[in-house]
Design a protein around this nucleic acid. Structure first.
Lengths: 356, 356
DNA sequence: CTGAAAGCGCTAACAC
DNA sequence: GTGTTAGCGCTTTCAG
């Protein structure tokens, strides 16, 4: 008797013995491969479930070369945007039976190390979804040469699966809204100027801002652009700098809701009210934006993660396939931080505040 | 010549040949095991790096039985609290070279399925960190019988590594603050009444609330307790219900910042100002709390994740070890949503609002 | 439709 | 200190 049932996990051999077939047949049967008699298959799967048998992942990976594991790479895990993307990715993984590893690469150096030394990834994962991680064509090639499929959110590379919003349009939506309200001095709180992560995203949003102004017949003014680094503190400082200008803006467009939150803090500190003294619009529709009444351009972040993950799975199935980029929709959500500019008293030149 | 360098990843054998040693020696050398001559070790690691050699994880796992992979289980991935915990866990994994799989179990059923059918986990991961996931002694035993170590955040089980805050104290901190300001009608926005996830956490925080009131000589009033389900919408509805009471509270303690955010929305909708008309305090110190000026009890969430992960790693090293629970500190952060109760005009019985 | 057998690439005794 | 060898548990030709 091969009865080694002393607390050890059942192996494929145990199942084979119990079902009176060979291990090969068990393997085929359980993986749904053809050439197994229905009756045999039924018996095997019955025995297998009774024994709580599951193929040892390591053994299966070693033999088959596929890991059924992907990794999702993000700049940080804790922010609203990235954690929401990860949630979307994980949901699809759970559904498809993939393991979902997370990796945070805080700096461009870390990210490049990961993407250059792709042999770290080889045979370890089937694919990777890159969330706003800059990747060169060479790096993408290096990945696929090592059998690692790749899907991106944000910047596109090659013909890999990709999902992104139209950042130019998103920004235009925001700034057009401001212009329609009557604003002319519209500031921009941008991502980073030095782009440490080399995002395309801030560039495109900047373009949307510029396009909108141009279309509105408003000249660009460098004094109305401040970097906010996509964080609350950055937004706060940027807004402070903007308000300290000789002629401050009546409205500001922040490239992300979190930066807009920071801007809101500055406004409060100065006893200014958003939507009355200064208008403010962001991008994202962060969970908390509705609490703050922030006007913003909504994007569907979890869905983007899910779509990117499905794309990755498709790429894993057919590594040579070409993929079209998927455009995720955006929409303006008007709340209370935007309104027409405060009425000036142009002819007299007397400022409201001096009237008292 | 065993020159099979045609795009195939280098194996341990390739390294062995190149370094003129046996595979066993390569294995020892590269893993820092003893009994390798320093010179040999140096040569091997040189050759190995030159060849970009990395042990195939699947093969290593199969042979050694250890996966160097853990999973972190959370109710959802996208919330502030959980994503911040995951960030802490991931950071430690990155540092120690573990792969960090994430799993979201939205319901108690899912979570129990995972913990009951532990054979799913066996040989797949070395350990699991459970973030506010209820686990029974039996489930914990079942895990360890299958060689899966376990570390928890929140509820403790057995002598597994655990980190948690003192929830009773956290709640007391919040409510004592309110009492010291002079409030007597202090409401509670609780987690869930039916506890679908069976958290200890809301129970303990409820106790802290009750303790504080008792210590302040204030009687409990069931009409001042509403469930908010730990979400923004829940908090919003709870606050609305509270304000609709015949005699509404002058202050409310929400068990989490997100519920407090929802409460804030309700206040705004009714043109009430937090910190003037009603005082409000939460627990967490969510990223956005400072933007809203929310008084809260801060906890250090990422650190909790990191500590729990280190605990897990220790448990993996020595599976039979007993661990003391780690208490993560909390602190009251006073901002602008709390202040003394609005002055009543008790003797006349005339309400302030009628004076106009 | 099923079985035998040869690996997958590594680790861990055990010899030397 | 170093090499030999027997697996780890599965997948996958190749026969039959």
């Amino acid at each position: 008797m091969t009865q080694r049932s002393n607390r050890t996990r059942a192996t494929i051999e145990d199942v084979a013995n119990a079902a009176n077939v060979s291990v090969a047949t068990v393997s085929r049967a359980l993986r749904g491969l053809p050439n197994v008699a229905p009756s045999t298959r039924a018996r095997i799967s019955e025995v297998a479930t009774a024994m709580h048998y599951r193929a040892d992942p390591a053994a299966a990976r070693l033999a088959a070369g596929r890991t059924r594991t992907i990794v999702v790479v993000v700049p940080h895990l804790a922010g609203w945007y990235f954690s929401t993307v990860v949630a979307g990715v994980e949901a699809v993984c759970a559904e498809t039976g993939y393991d979902c590893i997370v990796m945070a690469v805080g700096t461009i150096e870390e990210s490049n190390r990961l993407l250059d030394e792709t042999y770290h990834l080889e045979r370890r994962i089937d694919g990777v979804v890159l969330v706003n991680i800059p990747i060169s064509e060479a790096q993408a090639r290096s990945l696929s040469e090592r059998g690692v499929s790749c899907s991106t959110i944000g910047v596109r590379v090659g013909h890999q699966p990709n999902v992104s919003i139209d950042d130019v349009t998103a920004a235009r939506l925001a700034v057009d809204h401001l212009i329609q309200l009557g604003h002319r001095r519209i500031a921009l709180i941008s991502g980073q100027v030095e782009d440490p992560m080399n995002f395309e995203v801030p560039k495109m949003r900047h373009r949307g801002y510029a396009d909108a102004l141009e279309a509105g017949g408003i000249g660009l003014d460098d004094a109305l652009v401040e970097a906010g680094n996509f964080g609350i503190d950055g937004g706060r400082e940027a807004m402070a700098a903007l308000l300290d200008r000789p002629s401050p803006p009546t409205a500001v467009f922040a490239m992300s809701d979190e930066m807009a939150f920071g801007a809101l803090m500055t406004l409060q500190e100065r006893d200014l009210t958003a939507g009355r003294d200064v208008s403010l619009v962001g991008i994202d529709d962060h969970d908390v934006s509705r609490v703050l009444g922030l006007t913003t351009v909504r994007q569907h972040v979890a869905e983007q993660g899910a779509l990117a993950c499905r794309g990755l799975m498709a790429a894993i199935e057919s590594p040579t396939a070409q993929f079209e980029t998927i455009r995720s929709p955006v929409e303006l959500v008007v709340r209370s931080t935007t309104s027409p500019p405060p009425v000036a008293i142009p002819s007299t030149g007397v400022q409201t505040s001096r009237l008292s």
